[in-house]
Design a protein around this nucleic acid. Structure first.
Length: 596
RNA sequence: GGUCUGGUAGCUCAGCUGGAUAGAGCAUCAGCCUUCUAAGCUGAGGGUCAUUGGUUCGAAUCCAAUCCAGAUCACCA
């Protein structure tokens, strides 16, 4: 149990003993004591004043007295300042916490709880390579999956690949027209980029055709419809739906190139999936559901034959679920897939990592699932994240301001290599070791930068800032870890960690205690991060712990401690910190190096 | 126009289930490497928490209105 819970419980018990009144945790507030005051945790008295009809200071005195007398193993001293009861937590508590957990690499993680969650993330189109926005999505999805695992959930990581449709046909047509049989192999271009280039070529050609038509006197709307390349694309989509062999062949080949490219990127950044869905398999799902929905009178048909749902009572509009020609729309297959996920995996919760531009869509999807009575509809959760913008504004593919995922990752790794070489601390590393280190640092910087911000907020990507390795960054935390490992290596050589220190003869010094206090909060942070589906909780925490440790490191020596006992204590503090930094970073998909 | 987000230091962000003098990092300035890794540490300056009203012993935090920015409201996906 955390010290905050202990304090809550014992305060409730004390208040009941003192005043014969019962309270709950919600009746008073507990905060960490501000550094300028004496104490570790603070009970705020004001909320109790009304029901107890006593002054804040009077309650504080009686409560502080009672707590220190009856729970001496937890609270050793108190003071009252302006209605705030500041309690000093007994060294024995911190001591015990440290001794119990210092060597536990699973510290903070929970037992399996028997619940299953699916996290869907990444979900790319197969007509262009991944970009910075996908990276935020992927890192978020992966991290949330890890955080849920740490909280005891079984997690299935999934991905829906948008591999069909008019936009895919665009790059196919462009390849057909302009490639002269070129392939990724023949050009040496990575498959996803190769296909993406033809998507761009399509748009260029299309634009030129439209302009030409307009200059010939055709009005713009007609020109956009009648441009030959667009008509060819639409024909290709029909051919695809008919399963025309040569179209299917081209489609498979080009998607294959894209998947080869994606695989490389995923591997580089350490992303993976347990289940991949393809839209070409799922796009017909949901047709049965439309029928069922009609029977249940959830849906209704208009005179032209199209099928709709009326969501006006829920503050939304009417939404189409099937076109008048009987084909299904985007949301219909989503309903089908939502049900399929549940049927295949029996998941208790279904998380969708999707940008906030689809808030409306996801709200509609959940409402429809609920109205259809789908078993887990209430447990659909849209992890809605904000767009990544540049300092110059939004990324726009048409203006070529999109930051490519492979490019930015390469850049981060190159920068980490330069930086590491300048510092010259790992000159004895082999080429392979160096490569691994550069990857660890570069990717660590990248992931930390994207995960440290609250997911739901729009964030600004500043290239210069993102490759900074100082301060609130991944490399800072990695560096702190490497420093600790350096201490531990030296000490374990001399077998130091064997000696017990269950009884301390001297008090904890401030820097020592600060680190333990921070370490004690790790389990709460894992819980909070899971509740909020928010990896930035972990990023902020891990940074705070690393910072606290660095202060400790600069003020006190482990190797040359005043006494044997202090040396042991500090070794344990160091080991505990290292373990937490490692598992905390792991929750964000970031590795930590033994040396850097 | 309807709905939903957001507005905190020069910049990027914490804090938002109400509590003490609003915190970090970057940038700027001043110190600290003969002692466990200076990718570090210590300190300084920097704020009308968009604005106005309300609720409260107490508001960056809750409520209302206003201003500003963004998203969305397709028989597109």
């Amino acid at each position: 149990m955390s010290i905050v819970s202990i304090l809550q419980k014992s305060t409730i018990e004390s208040l009941s003993a003192l005043y014969n009144q019962s309270f709950t945790e919600k009746d008073f507030q507990i905060n960490q004591t501000k550094p300028e005051f004496e104490g570790d945790y603070t009970v705020v008295m004001f909320a109790l004043v009304k029901s107890l009809k006593l002054s804040p200071d009077a309650i504080g005195n009686q409560l502080g007295d009672h707590l220190t007398k009856n729970y001496p193993q937890y609270f050793s001293a108190y003071n009252i300042i302006k209605g705030f009861l500041n309690l000093t937590v007994a060294d024995a508590y911190w001591q015990e916490l440290l001794n119990k957990n210092y060597n536990d690499i699973c510290y903070g993680k929970k037992e399996m709880n028997g619940k299953k969650v699916m996290v869907e993330y990444s979900s790319p189109n197969t007509n262009k390579p991944l970009h910075l926005g996908h990276l935020r999505n992927i890192f978020l999805g992966w991290s949330v999956a890890e955080i849920l695992k740490a909280n005891g959930y079984e997690v299935v990581k999934s991905c829906i690949v948008n591999d069909r449709g008019i936009h895919i046909c665009k790059s196919m047509i462009a390849w057909h027209l302009f490639a002269n049989g070129a392939t990724p192999e023949s050009t040496g271009i990575k498959g996803d980029h190769f296909v993406g280039d033809y998507y761009v070529k399509f748009n260029d050609a299309y634009k030129a055709e439209v302009e030409k038509l307009v200059s010939e006197g055709v009005d713009k709307a007609t020109a956009e419809k009648e441009a030959p390349i667009m008509k060819a694309t639409q024909q290709m989509l029909l051919d695809w739906e008919d399963g025309k062999p040569e179209v299917m062949e081209l489609w498979k080949t080009m998607n294959g190139w894209v998947y080869d490219g994606f695989d490389v990127t995923y591997k580089n950044i350490g992303a993976d999936f347990d289940k991949i869905y393809y839209e070409s398999d799922t796009y017909l799902l949901g047709k049965d559901i439309v029928k069922q929905g009609m029977d249940k009178k959830v849906f209704f048909q208009k005179e032209d034959g199209s099928i709709w749902i009326d969501l006006t009572n829920d503050g939304l509009d009417e939404k189409i679920v099937q076109r008048k020609d009987g084909t299904s729309v985007y949301i219909t297959q989503d309903i089908g897939l939502a049900l399929q996920k549940y049927e295949q995996y029996g998941i208790d919760q279904s998380i969708y990592v999707i940008g906030n531009e689809q808030n409306y869509h996801m709200k509609v999807l959940q409402l429809i699932c609920q109205k259809l009575g789908m078993p887990n509809a209430d447990n659909i959760y849209h992890l809605s994240y904000g767009m990544v913008e540049l300092t110059s504004g939004k990324m726009k593919s048409r203006e070529g301001t999109v930051v490519d995922a492979d490019d930015i990752v390469d850049e981060m790794i190159t920068t980490s290599a330069q930086h590491t070489e300048e510092l010259g601390k790992v000159k004895d590393f082999t080429a392979d070791e160096l490569k691994e280190l550069y990857n660890t640092i570069g990717l660590g910087a990248m992931k930390f930068y994207l995960l440290r911000v609250d997911p739901k907020k729009t964030m600004v990507f500043n290239p210069t800032e993102s490759i900074d390795f100082h301060g609130f960054t991944g490399p800072f935390v990695q560096y702190t870890y490497a420093r600790i490992k350096s201490i531990l290596r030296k000490q374990s050589d001399s077998g130091q960690l064997a000696v017990g220190i269950d009884q301390m003869s001297s008090n904890l010094l401030k820097p020592e205690k600060d680190v333990i206090v921070a370490a004690e909060q790790f389990p709460l942070m894992i819980e909070q991060a899971a509740q909020e589906h928010n990896p930035s909780v972990i990023a902020n925490y891990v940074f705070h712990l690393a910072k606290t440790f660095n202060s400790f490191y600069s003020e006190l020596s482990v190797a040359n401690a005043e006494t044997e006992e202090k040396e042991q204590l500090r070794l344990r503090i160091s080991l505990l910190t290292a373990n937490i930094l490692k598992s905390g970073m792991q929750l964000m998909g970031i590795k930590v190096p033994e040396r850097m």
